[in-house]
Design a binder for these strands. Sequence first.
DNA 1: TGTTAACAGTACGGTAGCGTTCCGATGGAG
DNA 2: CTCCATCGGAACGCTACCGTACTGTTAACA
Lengths: 228, 228
Amino acid sequence: MAGRSREGGKRPVVPPAAGQPRAASTTSQHTSSDPQQPISRGAGARQRVLQAALQVLDDDGLPGFTMEAVARRAGASKATLYRRWPTLGALMIDAMDATFQPFSVPETGRVETDVEQLLTALVTLLEHTPFPRLLAAFIGAVERDPALAALHADLTRRRREPLLVVLDRARERGELPPDLDPEVVTDLLTGPFFYRRFIAHRPIPPDMVNDVITHVLTTPRRRTDQPT
Amino acid sequence: MAGRSREGGKRPVVPPAAGQPRAASTTSQHTSSDPQQPISRGAGARQRVLQAALQVLDDDGLPGFTMEAVARRAGASKATLYRRWPTLGALMIDAMDATFQPFSVPETGRVETDVEQLLTALVTLLEHTPFPRLLAAFIGAVERDPALAALHADLTRRRREPLLVVLDRARERGELPPDLDPEVVTDLLTGPFFYRRFIAHRPIPPDMVNDVITHVLTTPRRRTDQPT
DNA sequence: TGTTAACAGTACGGTAGCGTTCCGATGGAG
DNA sequence: CTCCATCGGAACGCTACCGTACTGTTAACA
């Protein structure tokens, strides 16, 4: 019962994680598939499997993420999967890594506008793509697999980089105080949106991007003076 | 094999989620066990099962969270579980709800100190208790179960409340500008820590609490003046 | 002390995933 | 055109979980 789902597997569940033009994901030594070499037989199957893996993860979550399920959805045989990925974790790593694309760095000339672009893109990613569901499953898996944890840290680092670049440039231009810590500011800027989506599980209001920017991108001045 | 773990179940895996004195969780109509009524036979088994559920979730994550596994760990029969909880989701809801305890509201007289206490407690919760692992599994489950999503939103609301109270009081005392939005500030204050733990998957440095407070609890002043 | 509801334990048939093996088909490279 | 690595499909025995049903025991309450 439960509808075997007719494994056709045509659904376009997973567009690339970022809506921006793609820049090669540098740190990954797994994914190759350089555009010049004609997708050989092996590479074709590999791509299908990785995409199917993301679809399964998106549809059924961690409990449904199974070698059998992925093979079924990819129209591949289990032997093919086991030939390449010895474990579910390895498959998940490759699948997540292959999908990831970082945002491109905006250059509007003003910090606020640059940051606004990046945060707006983040909100879109969180609200209108399958990315958050994948990430939610990923978060659970990461707790029990050090290899996944390492990849997760790496992906996050790459995702943070555009924002860090924007903040650094702004600081060089004098738009931000030099004693400001870009790492902390990045946490402050992006943390609340992830928090809303995954912890508070509430919608992200349209003004939130600007509210966050207003609160964070402000010359920090300690409140040494306190009333009463 | 993998060691059936000899179901003894003595491990204290789950101390109450908050390290603070317990205040009755108001919104929950499930959990009863008022301290005056002597833990009847049923309630005793119920408690054991709920605790076992959290242990299983903590140890094996979502994929290992199974009626059989919980019953085994609780030393209960499956019939007992099915008698009370028709589905895994219902069991998870009760288990998470029963464990939750909100922080108590500090009253040091200064916003910064109050907030510092709450955030420090949060960091402790995130770094030295099983809470984050439970939450990680929970986040994954929530994506596919509306009932869990509702409970999650409710739990988060209750968890935010102490911080909101502190901010409100501070505003009444004039320590904070009246046009400040407590909801956004709460997101800004707590979001980064969850982000570090679950997304960036990096350690939370000791200074981070104070850094965040410094950056956020500042009179927001828009940068209408920009250089160049 | 006797009654009764809740309990642990066990067993059931059924389904699903595991990891591996073999076979025959097929497409790309020489 | 031929060769051969790669692929899909199917089957293997095995284990685990499902949801339900039926035992005999035990603790709470009258």
